[in-house]
Design a protein around this nucleic acid. Structure first.
Lengths: 232, 232
DNA sequence: CGGACTTTTGAAGTAATTCAAGGGGAGTGG
DNA sequence: CCACTCCCCTTGAATTACTTCAAAAGTCCG
């Protein structure tokens, strides 16, 4: 099969880290590679959970949408991270949607294969526990922020987090390495695109950030951290 | 040892559900029973993660507090549920605090024992994955609510969720079966105790709820679901 | 019966949304 | 290459839902 992934791709996945080569080989044989273009949908909300993906290159966005169309971004996923965690936790439908925000290259695994691997190799199940624990902790922090902090702080925190997981050092500062609109930032910070726009405009004047159409560069990360309230 | 728990208590824990008797016995020997009074603290935020607890009877509250004292309630834990999940996911400190809200009876396990059991018995690791997955999904929903819905809907959702996990049918309606103040509801819904008080007063007039000092009874669950926006 | 919590309610203030309109870039097709 | 169109972003003005401030009234417990 031309579309079998290679071992190196697997061992860079957070689900297979530190797993023995023969188990990796077993996973590899059931896997398939797939490309998605920016904007393509990998997983639809409420769809039957049949496949788990792990990102090789690119960037995905996990969202939750209400019946009346309101949406929030749960998280962005980069290389090594997994999409479709419902497979792991035994749910039969995906609780949210996953979309590519950049041209992306992923590896897919059938649900049954992953479940079988977890049963026979506790190291994989333990990796799953770690990764879900980390995500759970992240959401706890975001929930606290959303409940207790004002918008500008929340937006600052959002940017700092994105910089951490997808920041690229440039001459001008740290650039968020994927297209990110005001609307996207709003859906991550729990506000509207208008407020995000106004807030960024203010920071722009002070030289804290340098942003444009679906593009954000953090010029002064220290100042942004101050705004976020990280004890100076 | 007088304080060894019995097998029945263990198999009712979400972490040990469906696990074989000999493994249960192994876990049992390393465990200890402990009682906490309402208000007692089981886990302090930022403490070293040394122990995992599972509730036998009573009710615990998991919270997150900011450096400036702002607090939110992550969730309430009832019989069978576990506290101190950091142990599972390999973190060395607890990201939040856990307090008893009613007199409670718990079983404690040393971190190393739990980690060892997960390595040797994938069924336990898989239970951990399921439980963390379910909690993660819960938080996703709450995050979405907090970001997109108005306070009265959020409070309604909070009450319905609490009723589901700790509701007791009475003549007057569904009673939340543990002490729950306006402040507690505020910390779960992302608002202030004043707003909760006003909102409940309004509902009280319409006969939707019947509440008092640290006590809430949902008289008309259907009406509350309507307020929460669950398509009638 | 005193004292500590918890709850209620009014009034003032405000942060952020909503409403509304216009302006700029990037890409497409003629 | 220029024009057209689609997004995305910006900015003002009006509105509002909610918080904050303040004070008083219950309620439980020793």
């Amino acid at each position: 099969m031309a579309d079998l992934p290679d071992i190196g791709m697997l061992e860079r996945s957070e689900l297979f880290r530190g797993v023995s080569p023969d188990v990796l080989e077993e996973a590899r044989r059931a896997a398939f590679r797939k490309k998605f273009l920016a904007g393509d949908v990998l997983i639809q909300q409420e769809d039957a959970a049949t496949t788990l993906f792990t990102v090789v290159v690119g960037r995905l966005r996990a969202t939750q949408t209400t019946s009346d169309g309101q949406q929030i971004i749960i998280r962005y996923l980069g290389p090594g991270e997994i999409a479709g965690y419902a497979i792991l936790s035994g749910s039969d439908v995906h609780p949210g949607a996953v979309t590519a925000v950049d041209d992306s290259h992923v590896i897919g695994f059938p649900a049954a294969v992953i479940r079988g691997l977890m049963v026979r190799h506790s190291s994989i199940a333990i990796n799953a526990v770690r990764l879900l624990g980390a995500r759970y902790r992240d959401l706890q922090v975001r929930l606290r922020e959303l409940a207790t902090e004002k918008v500008d702080r929340r937006i600052a925190h959002t940017l700092l987090r994105l910089a951490q997981q997808a920041g690229r050092r440039t001459i001008r500062g740290i650039e968020i390495a994927f297209p990110l609109s005001r609307q996207d930032l709003a859906e991550m910070s729990g506000t509207t695109l208008h407020t995000v726009s106004r807030t960024l405009s203010g920071w722009e004047e002070r030289g804290v950030v340098d942003s444009g159409r679906r593009r954000v560069v953090i010029a002064k990360p220290g100042d942004l951290a101050m705004i976020a309230g990280e004890t100076a």
